[in-house]
């Protein structure tokens, strides 16, 4: 259990994000929740790539004859971070437009489309 502590941290981050999505009434809080889930998933990927006693996968600074951590998750995570900022920016822009039109960012009042 204690050996898996980064995974537990990932779960806590995702849990916090999902909690925010489910029970917070402010649209900006919902965006924060999504950002937290995204951070959690990224940390999960990086933690998967970690290898004990290894160094960063860059030959320029690495000492001789030491193992390197797995590089693929880092590439995936880089992609995921950029995707995350794009998503966040779009969501927040839509929130701004909604505020412009509706005058509120409370989820209980933003439900003209229903039924």
């Amino acid at each position: 259990m204690i050996g898996n502590f980064p995974f537990i941290a990932v779960i806590i981050l995702i849990g916090l994000g999902v909690y925010s999505l489910l029970f917070k009434k402010n649209l900006i809080k919902i965006a924060i929740g999504l950002t937290l889930i995204e951070s959690g998933v990224n940390l999960f990927l990086i933690a998967l790539g970690f290898r004990k006693g290894a160094v960063a996968p860059i030959y320029t600074q690495a000492p001789e004859g030491v193992k390197m951590v797995l590089p693929t998750p880092q590439a995936l995570c880089l992609t995921s971070i950029v995707i995350g900022v794009a998503t966040t920016a779009l969501i927040l822009s839509i929130v701004m437009v909604i505020y412009q039109k509706y005058g509120t960012i409370n989820t209980d009042e933003i439900r003209r489309l229903r039924g």
Partner: peptide, 15 residues
């Protein structure tokens, strides 16, 4: 600390 400097720079700059 997890030996991912590339991602660390990206996260610090973007996140």
């Amino acid at each position: 600390l997890l030996h991912a400097p590339d991602v660390a720079i990206a996260e610090a700059g973007i996140g």
